[in-house]
Design a binder for these strands. Structure first.
Lengths: 205, 205
DNA sequence: TATAGGTTATTTGTCACCGAACAAGCTACC
DNA sequence: GGTAGCTTGTTCGGTGACAAATAACCTATA
């Protein structure tokens, strides 16, 4: 790799890191070009030069998190795991990621919640993300019903909504009480209660 | 009541309604003095004259919702209901309020999520709100354990976190998918699964 | 290998815009 | 006529965007 590429890569990385840190610490609205540049150790103008616009930067940031984390960790983890295991694995892979390095997840959640009020494009993006997420969860539940690991009387769609609600609500309380709310036990309990509820019980039915 | 008071009351009401509507439709960030005034049928200057500052307006708005709705509907509904009934009633009273008139709840949720990125004061306020809410839920669970309506092996604090997570997550998906996500069945399912999990089961243990 | 000329990365200067806040003035009520 | 409600004019700070200037780097050529 040439020195120019290295330079670009280093500054891009610094800018994205700075942007993420600002979003987590002070929120999306506080993320101005001047602040990003200063924090990254560059000028305020570089952000525009590199990403074109604020939207471009955010898009890149989300791609980085979703593709570099979700796709690399969450998807493979659930591959092979069927039915009830898939559901549990999906929740626990988020837990694992937070335990290892919480910054990416924090940025993602902060953007998710704050996107409600700002950009229509961002809102649309997260809306789609939730649609597919609900579909995936519901699919796993259906799979579990088919393979007998999940009791047949559960409604896959409602389950998907409830599980995702749990995830998002934990994320919200986590961000709201920076440092004082531990998401890990909450995720554990979410996983545990979900499994308990879904698992085929010999006595029931 | 004198005509002056009526006038003030009418304009105050109009301003608060407009502010709420803007928050719901376009988000907290889009809520500018000019927009509020225009929408309410007054000038942009009245907001400052009436509430002093933007913070003052938001404070008033939250008070109006929390004191005028939560305290009037939720608290009395759970009075008398003990243990498991209290938990279910609390969830269902939110459901009832949304079914009757969802605007207030929507405004509250929108502020909750967006406050993450804006005001520190707002964040602090919602942080406290969640603390007391968790404490209240945990108290109800403990009460239920004492009076035998809730199984003794549940952890009140973890339950409180999980239930509130469910509520917030449903709220988030509701706001994200304006018009396409129905919170009512989700709240029903949340209440049902919560009760199923908490209720003293003769076979268990 | 030295360096000139071109290319890419980064900074600085500047503009147009928007928002909150306040003050001075105007209008409705009493 | 006086007070309370409301409006208009204005200021000030801050923002994203872009263009022009500068600095770092790369390459071709002698």
């Amino acid at each position: 790799m040439t020195k120019q590429q290295e330079r670009t890569e280093r500054s891009t990385r610094a800018l994205l890191d700075a942007a993420g840190a600002i979003i987590v610490e002070e929120g999306f609205a506080a993320m101005t070009f001047a602040k990003i540049g200063e924090r990254a150790g560059y000028s305020r103008g570089l952000v525009t030069a590199r990403f074109g616009s604020k939207e471009g930067l955010v898009e890149t940031l989300i791609d980085l998190i979703v593709n570099g984390w979700s796709h690399k960790n969450v998807i493979p983890a659930t591959k092979g795991a069927d039915g009830i295991d898939g559901v549990e694995t999906l929740i626990m892979s988020i837990r694992r990621q937070i335990a290892r390095d919480d910054t990416g997840v924090k940025v993602l959640y902060a953007l998710m919640f704050e996107s409600l009020g700002h950009d229509v494009a961002l809102k649309e993006r997260f809306s789609r993300l939730h649609h597919t997420m609900r579909r995936d969860f519901a699919g796993m539940v259906r799979q579990g019903i088919r393979d007998g690991t999940i009791r047949p009387d559960v409604d896959p769609k409602r389950e998907a909504v409830l599980i995702i609600s749990g995830l998002r609500g934990i994320g919200y309380q986590w961000l709201l009480d920076q440092g004082r709310f531990d998401p890990l036990p909450a995720l554990d309990y979410l996983a545990q209660t979900t499994v308990d509820r879904l698992v085929a019980d010999k006595d029931a039915q």
